[in-house]
């Protein structure tokens, strides 16, 4: 049985674990937060936070978010690695742009850095722009994530000449988009799991293998 099927069976067979009050469509339901919705939607309500731990192929990582008291923003920190050879550490802000009873759409801008080891090693400051679309608000939350990653690569050439040493710098930008589809399931208040598929595209136009992952999600509120 696949992990996704296991999650769905669990969600159907344990309805009493997370009985929730009737949804309040304007603007968010009352009661405890949905950590899986918050994590998959990319932003929490004021006073809420969510942390997710991801394991799979090729990605492993951790992501945390906490609502800030300004303009509906969330502070976000993320560490993500593809097979522990292509690691990204990013921090930034996210915000829910659309938040209805049925749909949550959020945007996210992160900056930080990346280090890749091996024959295709590279490092540099990086950014990630992400759109997250989640179907809320319920025990089962499907979500689509589209990310665009950029790395600024600075290459330095130190040249010995007869007139003295010369240093030349060249800069380029590497782009790596990633798409993910997740299904999150609330297990109990403050705890959820999700499973998903990843379609990374490392260094286009080269082809990259798709992947899959599972997430453990915890969340809290003030």
């Amino acid at each position: 049985m696949s992990p996704l099927s296991l999650l769905l069976v669990f969600a159907v067979s344990a309805p009493a674990l997370a009985e929730r009050p009737p949804p309040n469509p304007d603007p968010r339901p009352m009661g405890p937060p949905d950590p899986h919705l918050d994590a998959l939607a990319g932003a929490s309500d004021l006073g809420d936070w969510a942390v997710s731990l991801e394991a799979g192929f090729p990605f492993f990582g951790a992501r945390g978010q906490v609502a800030l008291p300004w303009a509906g923003l969330n502070a976000v920190g993320s560490v993500n690695s593809a097979l522990f050879t292509d690691t990204w550490a990013l921090g930034g802000v996210s915000k829910r742009w659309v938040d209805t009873h049925r749909v949550v759409l959020s945007g996210e801008i992160l900056v930080g850095g990346t280090i890749r080891s091996g024959d295709l090693s590279r490092r540099g400051p990086a950014s990630q722009t992400t759109l997250r679309l989640a179907r809320g608000h319920g025990r089962v939350v499907p979500a689509l994530t589209l990310s665009s990653r950029h790395v600024l690569l600075t290459d330095v050439q130190e040249i010995q000449t007869a007139e003295g040493d010369v240093v030349q710098r060249s800069r380029s930008i590497a782009w790596s988009p990633v798409a993910s589809f997740d299904v999150g399931v609330g297990v109990c208040p403050g705890f959820a799991v999700s499973a998903g598929l990843d379609v990374p595209w490392f260094d286009p136009p080269g082809f990259s293998l798709p992947g899959a992952h599972i997430n453990l999600i915890v969340g809290g509120w003030k």
Partner: peptide, 17 residues
Amino acid sequence: LSLSPLVGCVNSRTQWV
């Protein structure tokens, strides 16, 4: 967390003559 990787922003450093 976000600032730590910024240390060492040079992707590659090569020497030529």
